[in-house]
Design a protein around this nucleic acid. Structure first.
Lengths: 342, 342
DNA sequence: CTGTTAGCGCTTTCAC
DNA sequence: GTGAAAGCGCTAACAG
């Protein structure tokens, strides 16, 4: 591989001059003639600056670290998969590359520590954050730059971007209200989930401000699985017909899929007898029948916002707001209709 | 961040000595006492070697480049998503990290070129290879180290690992034969697809060696979509009942899902009237009803094999075989049964 | 306007 | 057994 010396020799100038024209610094000082000369030489020898040397000199790697999160069991993590892709893309647009790594069985921290100590990455992007997230407290303590896709403890001050789950649920419930529904239920997550709580709040608030009361049984909580959806539906089926929900918003497409399959098993027709809305717009949403109306997370916007935020963090610029909510889009497909006029 | 100098000062030795004990080189020359001294100092100051400096010195980055492939439309690339994760894991086990990047709109080559010229990565891993793959010819021409998940032109000599699609289809067809099926069809890919052809060969050969002839209409070709599966099924439905397939092997879970939904639309019960087998074990396979019997690609084994291969490539060790087929596993679920004794 | 040069943090040859 | 020092390729302060 050619080095800056080769270029300098070829162009008949010093390496400093080559560096100047290449880095656009002081370039107003460089005569156009020399400039040309250097650029030609660069092209001729096929030169590109060596990343390791630059990194050493500048003590930064132009690399952003991001840890993979595997789906608990058997796939279905479409949001994070596409997040990773768009994150790589946004990072590149900002002049960085993505270093993806995995957690060891000793938990996440050792890898972060190693990455920091060896200076492998300039910053981290986190996702799948929880309450009391160890990674966040660790990075905060180390003072190492990072941004997060997702929130954590409200009293921790760190930069994050998140899907506006509350606003999303508001969109969903409003849409159902417009279709004429009044008895709207929710298949939710356990109360300790941050985004679960936010989304549930959106549902609750929108119902309230529409003057609708929510019977406690209308909020069913469970994990991220089809079974959770099935259980929720079966629970509602125990109610007298006149009290059963005519529509349900779900914390996740997978849960929605569970609601739908349990409903169909009982002869309830989705879109006619029961309207269902999911969350995430997983591939699944397009493949189940009827196609699922859902809230699509705006991943490309999210990764862009994360990178913009990261750039200000790396500039130690504390003037800009350090969080940002991005509204999901309601994708209307075939799983909703007006309540059957029974 | 502490440097090797800090450690040296703390331990009261020279930086060379520190380097020796840390790199286990010449360590038989280092007295145990000094060794201890250094190790303690390392721990005390919290030292880890700086990656950029090491990279510069050794002119290698310990980074492996891998380009993301986005699914043509709306997700469903589960195999590659999980491939990327396991690749990162296998790379780490071998002392590397994964640098994931994306293609620009100018095609893949510019990024590869830039990565090579700047010495950002030591090698590449390719996936989703095609015939006359430009990336392969480029890397071959540049003499840059790479390994590939998937084959390409038979006359190109390069290291690859691939799922044994032929053997997989053989497993699938054999299984159907054992269940008593004789009229087995295939929803295949167009003839220009490499893995499509390999899998189709497995189907054809196994049928032949069972003494079964394949009516041309039994092989339906289409792209990677549900519609392709639906079209295939509808085509078979045009046949007189006694000539219709009682089982079908599909090139992909998604295509299988299309076959299943078209079948159900016509009142054909999957598992009873028609047996279906997919390929890939996408998340989808577990969520459609009935759960899809399918061939699961052995991704962790594949990424491990790729890395083992890459290590020998990087050692310029030409003695080891440069390709490797890994058998998929037949995951038996609920989409197959014995042919209905009509 | 351009060149000389020190030095980023590490490894390794060579000398003691 | 251990240390001094060169040098990987680049950038930027300083000199001219």
């Amino acid at each position: 591989m050619p080095t800056i010396k080769d270029v300098a020799r070829e162009a008949g100038v010093s390496t400093a001059t080559v560096s100047y024209v290449l880095n656009q610094k002081k370039s107003y000082l460089i005569s156009p003639a020399t400039r040309e000369l250097v650029l030609d030489a660069v092209k001729k020898v096929g030169y590109a600056p060596n990343a390791a040397a630059r990194n050493l000199k500048a003590s930064q790697s132009h690399l952003i670290g991001y840890a993979w999160h595997v789906a608990p069991s058997g796939g279905m993590n479409s949001v994070l998969d596409s997040f990773t892709y768009y994150l790589a893309q946004s990072a590149e647009a900002a002049g960085y590359h993505l270093l993806t790594f995995t957690h060891t069985d000793k938990g996440p921290l050792p890898v972060y520590e190693e990455m920091i100590q060896s200076g492998r990455v300039d910053a981290f992007v986190l996702s799948d954050t929880t309450n009391d997230d160890k990674r966040i407290s660790y990075l905060l303590e180390m003072g190492y730059p990072f941004v997060s896709f997702g929130r954590s403890n409200p009293d921790w001050d760190f930069p994050w971007v998140d899907t506006d789950g509350k606003q999303g649920m508001e969109q969903a419930v409003r849409y159902l209200l417009e279709l004429g529904h009044r008895r709207i239920a929710m298949a939710a997550w356990p109360e300790d989930s941050i985004s679960g709580t936010v989304r549930a709040d959106g549902y609750i608030d929108t119902m309230r401000s529409a003057g609708l009361s929510i019977p406690p049984v209308y909020i069913q909580r469970g994990e991220h699985s089809e079974e959770a959806g099935q259980r929720a539906f079966n629970c509602w089926m125990q109610l007298p017909p006149a009290e059963r929900p005519t529509a349900v918003v779900c914390i996740t497409d997978l849960v929605a899929s569970g609601v739908m399959s349990a409903a169909e098993a009982q002869g309830v027709v989705i879109g006619r007898d029961l309207s269902v809305i999911g969350f995430d717009d997983a591939p699944l949403a397009q493949y189940i029948r009827p196609h699922l109306t859902t809230l699509q997370q705006a991943i490309p916007e999210i990764t862009q916002a994360l990178l913009k935020m990261l750039e200000t963090v790396l500039k130690k610029d504390n003037s800009t707001p350090s969080h940002c909510l991005i509204a999901p889009r309601l994708i209307i497909r075939d799983s909703c209709g007006s309540p059957s006029s029974r």
